[in-house]
């Protein structure tokens, strides 16, 4: 069976309902992207992205847009890891994520890891646009190959703007066909998992986060704005999650 690339979009809009809770006036998905509201803490709306099919496969183009309006609190997770797979189409797959948070809004974007399977080719583009008074916790984890397997090709760019000003713009490219040296001592050094945690809080403007190491493979990095990044590498996804959880506890 030949399969043309799938295009799928999911949209989530969270709105403060004026009574201390957060409503979800928009909660749309199609095909492989299905957002489901789940039970959350009081005041927040919690959404789980449920993958109805595996993917993305080569040629697919997925888009997820999530927005927390003024005063809304939204927490988004995923039911399982996203698995980049090779497709019959030789083209690369695209996964675009656009996140917006208004003043006094808060978004926790905490999906399960992305696993880059041998032979896959995926471009991930995550754009975050925050108002000056917005809050964000974002985690992204890339696992290079399933256990004992070579990774696919993965290019993942993450940019964060606060009130229009770029505070972070980073792209990691790895796997066969990526520019040379990606697995060497300057970039990943043979580690098979890499991740970032981004925390944005207006309070950081007055009390900046202090740079510090978290073991050998991770560092807390105050960004040029009321934001901090944790960059980490680890031998596998489990150990990566452990250090990012530790970092999140520190930055709360």
């Amino acid at each position: 069976m030949t399969r043309a690339g799938v295009r799928a979009t999911a949209r989530i809009v969270a709105r403060a309902d004026g009574r201390g809770a957060t409503a979800l006036p928009v909660l749309d998905g199609e095909g492989p992207l299905a957002p489901r509201r789940t039970r959350g803490e009081s005041g927040e709306a919690r959404v789980l992205l449920v993958g109805a099919m595996s993917g993305p496969l080569g040629g697919d183009r997925f888009t997820v847009e999530a927005e927390a309006e003024k005063g809304a609190r939204l927490r988004v997770g995923s039911a399982a890891a996203t698995i980049a797979l090779p497709g019959q189409a030789k083209e690369e797959a695209h996964y675009d994520v656009l996140l917006r948070v208004a003043d006094d809004g808060e978004l926790h974007w905490l999906p399960e890891p992305l696993i880059s399977v041998a032979g896959s080719d995926l471009r991930v583009r995550t754009r975050v646009e925050l108002a000056a008074g917005a809050r964000l916790v974002l985690r992204e984890e890339q696992v290079l190959g399933r256990a004992g397997e070579e990774p696919g090709r993965l290019t993942s760019r993450l940019s964060v703007r606060i009130a229009g000003r770029a505070v972070l713009d980073q792209e990691l490219a790895c796997g066969p066909g990526a520019p040379g040296g990606w697995d060497g001592p300057a970039v990943l050094g043979g580690q098979r998992a890499a991740g970032q945690l981004i925390v944005v809080r207006p309070e950081f403007a007055a009390e900046p986060v202090r740079a510090r190491m978290l073991g050998e493979g991770a560092a807390v990095l105050p960004l040029p704005g009321p934001a901090a990044a944790v960059t980490a590498v680890a031998p596998d996804g489990l150990r990566l999650r452990r250090v990012l959880d530790e970092a999140l506890a520190l930055l709360r």
């Binding site: 490219a173 300057a186 560092a219 980490a232």
Partner: peptide
């Protein structure tokens, strides 16, 4: 925006 995690860390 090509980045190198180990250079940063």
């Amino acid at each position: 925006a090509a980045s190198a995690p180990l250079l940063e860390i």
